[in-house]
Each structure stands twice: as structure tokens, then as C-alpha cells.
């Protein structure tokens, strides 16, 4: 994935010096301390029994090229709604990349839809994720997809079958690299 660095200028520069330390502490608090209290992320996927066609999804990627889910018909598509400030989104991002690596040559695509942030913010965050995500990052600057996809909280993930219908849903963070999830995703693509 080709990515560009344009300078990290989205923050209020007058405030950043005052609050940078507190922000680091907050992220530690949100991601580490609090996660110590939570059970590990599960690997459950809820089957969507009613045949629902995947809603419209068409946004620019990191290279500012338009990506349309309609063009991915015939493939399994994992659609993950997220933001960099969302602790469980951050927790699951590495596992999403490992899912991608395990399935990318098996008729599977992963689309991560960032809600309301800009490319610089996302680019900066991705550099901290291990392994670094190589799947498609799309940008929903106005959060217009949330209602269309009935997303009520971040993260939320849908798995779309090759015929364009929603097959699985997961509300909240997951371990996407768990063998059960990888197996389910691969089987859908066969």
C-alpha cells in the first residue's frame, strides 16, 4: 500500500504541549490498564440469519483512490468500522492484519473504514501497529456509513459473502487472527 506523509498538523499546536503527556497517559490508561481488567477479546462471530444485502460503501483509500464494495462482488469482504481513538479498535487492529495475511490469497479482502479522521492521523497511528496493516484503509470523513450499516458503536465488523450478503457480524473488539475466525472466513470464499 502506497502511503504519503504530509505532516502531522491536525492538532491544536497551542494545546499539544500542555496535553501531550496527559494524552499519552490516557492512551496507556485506555489501552493497557483498562484492558488488564477486561477479559481477552473473544473470537465469536454472530451469524446473520436473515439474508441482508451489504449496504453501499464507497470511499477513498490512503492513496485517495475510490474503492467501491460493489467492485468486490465474488469475494469475501471483511468490513471493519473503526477510529484511532477507540481503544478496542486499537486492540484488534494487529489481529485484523494477521487475518488479512492468512486469507489474502484465498479470495478475501479486508476494508477498514475509518470514521471521521484524516489520512495523517491514521497514517501516524498505523506506524505503531504491529504488524503494520497492509489492507485497505478507507475514509468516511462524515460518518455517513454508520446509519447505512446500522453501526451503533465502534468497532463493528461485518463479513460479507461472495454474493454480497452479510453473513457474520461482530460488535466490539475481537481476536480476528483466531483459527476459528480464519477458518470461517476462508470457508466463505470457497
Amino acid at each position: 500500500m502506497k502511503q504519503s506523509w504530509k505532516g502531522y498538523n491536525v492538532l491544536n499546536r497551542n494545546s499539544i504541549h500542555v496535553y501531550a503527556g496527559l494524552t499519552a497517559l490516557l492512551f496507556v490508561f485506555l489501552n493497557n490498564s483498562h484492558s488488564q481488567e477486561l477479559p481477552p477479546l473473544t473470537h465469536s462471530l454472530t451469524p446473520v440469519t436473515k439474508a441482508v444485502k451489504a449496504p453501499e460503501l464507497r470511499f477513498q483509500n490512503m492513496d485517495q483512490e475510490m474503492v467501491d464494495i460493489k467492485d468486490l462482488r465474488g469475494k469475501v469482504v471483511v468490513v471493519n468500522f473503526w477510529a484511532t481513538w477507540c481503544p478496542p479498535c486499537r486492540r484488534e487492529m494487529g489481529s485484523l492484519e494477521r487475518l488479512y495475511q492468512a486469507t489474502k490469497d484465498k479470495n478475501v479482502e479486508v476494508l477498514a473504514i475509518n470514521i471521521g479522521e484524516d489520512i495523517d492521523t491514521v497514517f501516524s497511528f498505523l506506524g505503531m501497529v504491529e504488524p503494520t496493516p497492509n489492507f485497505q484503509m478507507l475514509f468516511d470523513y462524515d460518518a455517513v456509513s454508520m446509519n447505512k450499516w446500522d453501526v451503533k458503536g465502534l468497532p463493528t465488523t461485518y463479513i460479507i459473502g461472495p454474493n454480497g450478503t452479510i453473513v457474520y457480524k461482530a460488535v466490539g473488539g475481537r481476536e480476528f487472527d483466531h483459527p476459528d475466525i480464519i477458518q470461517k472466513v476462508i470457508q466463505l470464499g470457497r
Partner: peptide, 8 residues
């Protein structure tokens, strides 16, 4: 859904 759906 049971099995771990959640929000923070």
C-alpha cells in the same frame, strides 16, 4: 449477542 458482543 451472547459470546462477547460489547462496547466501551
Amino acid at each position: 449477542k451472547p459470546g462477547g458482543d460489547w462496547n466501551q
